[in-house]
């Protein structure tokens, strides 16, 4: 008995230490990138292993925030995220409500939605369709072809179906039509759920990069992730950021610190919404896992 209690304690401590190391492995990259992004040019050149700079300077941040293409891509991404999420929310909630009621053809439409989750046309036919609908080289190419995520639609439909039927019948008695019921009863009741899904959609738009490469030829329209790819992954900050006026800085910061600053700026919005996301997501994922 004594031996097994000892083993038990050993396991608990080992487990706790392992979990702390794992969590540190997820946080450490950000701490490292954060601290190094403030290094001075001299210190960066001199040391080949840097953890905590002696002197902190915001040069890298000044540099990227003086780059027109960086600011433009930030603005593009904000626009994409706001407009895209609005489209997602409108398309998904209206369709989910219609399908949550018992209408003729509703089953067939739901089946079609489920089928698109199992089989998709793939990159080329979708690309041709985007081209044919005239969206190529427009920010709407990143919005309309992604207007509804089938999984979210199914989950929200399920959510609407779980709203008690009495509410609905009472309003019908009062002479309300389906549009009024949707606007005045269903939407206010589903605010928390819809807020959660907007956050998910918004994060998706903020993280978009490949659709940008695929559909947008003009670098002026590129969202932040495409620019970030050019700065960090292709290691070409000079080209990605364009000419930056050197009024504020005597020396241009090293490309490495520019890369780190850019990564942190692009990550910050996610970190800001993360606490709100966290409040909702466990619930959302679980509603979805219940078989429909």
């Amino acid at each position: 008995m004594n031996g097994s209690a000892w083993q038990d304690r050993l396991f608990r401590w080992g487990n706790a230490i392992f979990l702390v190391i794992l969590a540190a492995g997820m946080l450490f990259p950000f701490l490292y990138i954060f601290s190094v992004s403030f290094t001075t040019f001299d210190e960066f050149l001199k040391s080949d292993f840097l953890l905590w700079p002696k002197k902190w300077v915001p040069d890298a941040y000044l540099f990227i925030f003086h780059s027109r293409s960086f600011l433009r891509s930030l603005w593009m991404t904000v626009y994409l995220t706001v407009a895209g999420t609005a489209v997602n929310l409108i398309f998904t909630s209206t369709m989910a409500f219609g399908l949550s009621r018992n209408i003729y053809g509703g089953r067939a439409i739901t089946f079609m939605v489920l089928f698109t989750m199992l089989f998709s046309a793939g990159m080329i036919p979708t690309y041709l369709m985007v081209k044919m609908t005239g969206l190529l080289d427009s920010i709407w190419a990143l919005i309309l072809p992604a207007a509804i995520a089938p999984f979210n639609l199914i989950v929200i439909r399920q959510f609407f179906q779980n709203i008690p039927g009495e509410l609905y019948e009472a309003s019908v008695m009062d002479g309300a039509n389906d549009l009024t019921i949707f606007r005045k009863i269903i939407l206010p009741l589903s605010k928390p759920a819809l807020a959660a899904f907007s956050l998910f959609y918004a994060v998706g738009h903020w993280n978009t990069y490949f659709a940008g490469i695929l559909y947008l030829n003009d670098p002026k329209m590129w969202p932040i992730q495409v620019i970030l790819r050019q700065i960090v992954v292709l290691s070409d900050p000079k080209n990605a950021l364009g000419a930056v006026e050197q009024v504020l800085l005597d020396v241009q910061p090293p490309p490495e610190t520019i890369q780190m600053a850019a990564i942190l700026v692009a990550t910050l919005p996610i970190l800001i919404v993360y606490p709100f996301l966290q409040k909702h997501f466990a619930k959302g994922v679980l509603i979805g896992s219940i078989k429909g």
């Binding site: 698109t116 979708t126 041709l128």
Partner: peptide
């Protein structure tokens, strides 16, 4: 009686037809 429900389904249905189903038919290429 359900006409408003159909109206609400319409934008989403149009989306699925244009960007999900039509490209599947486009696979004939």
């Amino acid at each position: 009686r359900d006409r408003f429900l159909y109206l609400l389904v319409l934008p989403g249905l149009a989306y699925f037809i244009v960007y999900r189903i039509a490209p599947m038919l486009g696979m004939v290429i």
